[in-house]
């Protein structure tokens, strides 16, 4: 666009965090640059989240849990489907981000967006069906109905893969939230620029604030605070660093967090199963 003096001016984006439905800067005031692929040109500055941002995000995710998990499955489904719609609407922005920061071709970028939209639609469809598929009525001796139903496990922390995979990221987030969990997502540094369009998708999909929270920052600095936080009920570790995985397992012991490793990258029922817990009810029956 022509500037006031007929000059083309470009303004580097500052991409903020997404916590509680708002776009705050990190409380630490820090940032780190993301460069255009294979160049030293700054594409955007991202907030470098601190442990206090993690704490705030977890508190907000905890507050949002009751409201989100008690929404009707149908409504959660509608909202996930809306995310697919909004992703489609922001296709050009996603593609531009992938091309600029990851060096994807147009075809690759469109493929990644297609995968993400498919994942949203897949889990939108499952939101009001997975309980019927996974749940069961159990044969027991005695005059009781006995049935088992899956329920949301709670606040789920997601440590993203070092190798950015948009389809996998959306698969995780959609699978976690479709059953009523809330999520705190720490994006990997590689591909973290996707936070901007993705957060805008969530912010415009009727998603209640706090259900999905996106943080950008350094994995080495923050993973321990996510793994040790007592309000986090489950942690999904997609990163490959064996040291991080070992520490996550150790820290999870303190509040019996469920640690999820090697969850499938593609949409599937197993991804939902990994983030639910089962409740079995005995109900007496008469003649």
């Amino acid at each position: 666009m022509a500037g006031l003096n007929g000059m083309n001016t470009t303004v580097a984006k500052t991409i903020k965090l997404y916590i509680g439905g708002a776009f705050p800067r990190t409380e630490s005031g820090r940032s780190f640059p993301v460069y255009a692929h294979d160049s030293k040109k700054v594409y955007a500055h991202l907030c470098r989240a601190s442990r206090k941002d993690v704490r705030n995000a977890v508190s907000i995710a905890k507050s949002a849990l009751a409201g989100w998990s008690s929404r009707s499955a149908y409504n959660r489904s509608q909202i996930l489907y809306r995310m697919a719609e909004m992703t489609e609407g922001k296709r050009a922005e996603f593609v531009e981000t992938f091309v600029q920061t990851l060096g994807y071709s147009q075809e690759q970028s469109n493929g990644a967006v297609d995968q993400a939209i498919d994942a949203f639609v897949y889990y939108a469809g499952f939101a009001d069906k997975y309980q019927q598929v996974i749940g069961s009525v159990n044969p027991v001796t005695g005059p009781h109905h006995n049935f088992t139903t899956p329920e949301a496990v709670g606040v789920v922390a997601l440590l993203c893969s070092d190798e950015f995979d948009f389809g996998q990221l959306v698969t995780r987030i959609a699978a976690i939230t479709c059953s009523g969990n809330t999520a705190v997502v720490l994006l990997s540094e590689n591909g973290a620029a996707v936070l901007a369009p993705l957060a805008e998708v969530f912010a415009t999909s009727d998603l209640p604030g706090g259900v999905i929270n996106l943080l950008s920052g350094f994995m080495d600095e923050l993973y321990l605070h996510m793994a040790s936080h007592m309000e986090v009920d489950s942690i999904c570790c997609d990163c490959n660093d064996t040291k991080i995985i070992a520490t996550v397992k150790e820290e999870a012991v303190h509040n019996l967090k469920r640690v999820v490793l090697n969850s499938p990258k593609e949409p599937g029922l197993q991804n939902i199963l990994n983030f639910v817990e089962f409740k079995t009810v005995w109900h007496p029956v008469g003649d």
């Binding site: 905890k62 605070h225 040790s228 007592m230 309000e231 820290e251 303190h254 509040n255």
Partner: peptide
């Protein structure tokens, strides 16, 4: 402890 507590503590 170095860990963030949870309300039920």
């Amino acid at each position: 402890t170095g860990r963030y507590a949870y309300d039920k503590s």
